[in-house]
Computed example of a mutant assay.
Amino acid sequence: MATIRDVAKRAGVSIATVSRVLNNVGHPVRESTRQRVLEAARELNFSPNDLAKSLLRGRTATIGLLVPDISNTYYADILSGVEAVASERQLVVLLGNTNRDRERQVRYLRVFQEKRVDGVILAGGDTEHGVEPGSLAESGLKIIWIGYGAPGIPAIHPDNEGGAMEATRLLVALGHRAIGCITGPPESNSSRARFVGYRRVLQEAGLPLRPEWVTSGGFRPEGGYEAVRRIFRSGHGERPTALFVANDQMAIGALRAFQELGLRVPEDVAVVSFDDVPIARFLRPALTTVAIAGADLGRQAMEMLFEFLDTGRPPASRQLTTRLVVRESSGGPVGTLQA
């Protein structure tokens, strides 16, 4: 049985060089040397572990996953779906959490290239604002986008606009005519699509879109908390009797702000949200929200990536349907709340 020493002797290099090539770690190795080591390993049928076996087939058995905010359970669900499928195929997932920082996005993608990952899944509709779409295509990385992606990059995303329309239509059907909106980050494609859905339903119903009732909460609880305080302390006159909140994280902060302001949900203000994170049904009141199967998004993104790896051809993009889950926070018909 061949050993790493035999491979080193056949390739005319040191044992350390063989280890660096087969494990893809340490100082960079010239491509000609790397090929010589791999050829020697093939000739000697040397395969010390699964990673080395993958390298001999031109793969590293690693996948890169880039998310904008791992503290958001929506992205944690995506990670669980990605990891479940990767584990079935005996692949390792390298996770990068960008915290919505553009420089981090670029740095992580560079690391994924250096580690020679087999493919990359980019989760989050705003990732393209940190990286030029052209540079992604030229990177040589096989990429699947969870979100709206960029031209030439296969993508999978939920029906954000349709889900937001369904949520806002519920509020209209319940009798609300003064409906505000807490959006996500302005650079997020998902946030923009959800706002478009909200706006379309207001137009359908002949309701006004009041700029003072629309503000960004950055997709985070503290953002939702501050957004409510801005909207409901913004002078005198009418205030919204209902809010469409673009994700559950912001809705959680919004519920706390309403409590502090002495406003009851749903009696004084109805709230409908988006994502259906696990805690949504345990809140008081439980959130009415648009359900996205985050784990299913992750699983399907991995299936698309495997298709890409196996065929060498970009798979067709996909859109997943959403589902409105009606709970307590939307309440029933109410009148107009006055400041």
Rank of each mutant, 00 (worst) to 15 (best):
T215C: 14
R30Y: 04
A61V: 04
Q105P: 00
G331A: 07
S87Q: 14
G224W: 03
S329A: 08
N45E: 15
N160T: 03
L136I: 14
R42L: 07
G335E: 10
P285C: 10
L65Y: 03
P208E: 15
H236Q: 12
D159E: 14
P315Y: 02
S47P: 05
P133F: 01
L255V: 07
I252D: 04
R110K: 13
E238M: 13
Q249P: 01
R169D: 05
R318Q: 14
P48T: 10
G223S: 08
R57L: 11
G312D: 09
T183Y: 05
R57P: 00
V172R: 04
W145N: 14
R192V: 12
A11S: 03
V7M: 10
P240T: 07
L66I: 15
N247V: 10
L66Y: 09
I146H: 03
I78Y: 13
F308D: 06
A205C: 11
T3N: 07
I279A: 12
V120A: 07
R284C: 04
L171R: 05
T288W: 00
G12M: 05
G335I: 02
A270G: 01
K9N: 11
R110N: 11
T215F: 04
E222C: 06
R192D: 06
T127M: 15
L55F: 11
G163H: 01
G335R: 13
R318M: 12
A339F: 13
H27F: 03
P28I: 12
E39L: 07
F306Q: 14
V21Q: 04
E166P: 01
T98I: 10
L95E: 03
A286S: 15
E307I: 04
A41D: 10
D77K: 13
P151D: 15
Q90Y: 11
L287E: 06
V269Y: 03
I252V: 15
L283P: 06
H129I: 05
V93T: 12
I231G: 07
F244G: 06
I182S: 12
E161F: 01
T168L: 08
I292L: 13
Q259G: 08
R89T: 06
D310W: 05
I292Y: 05
E238F: 14
A205I: 12
E212I: 03
F282L: 13
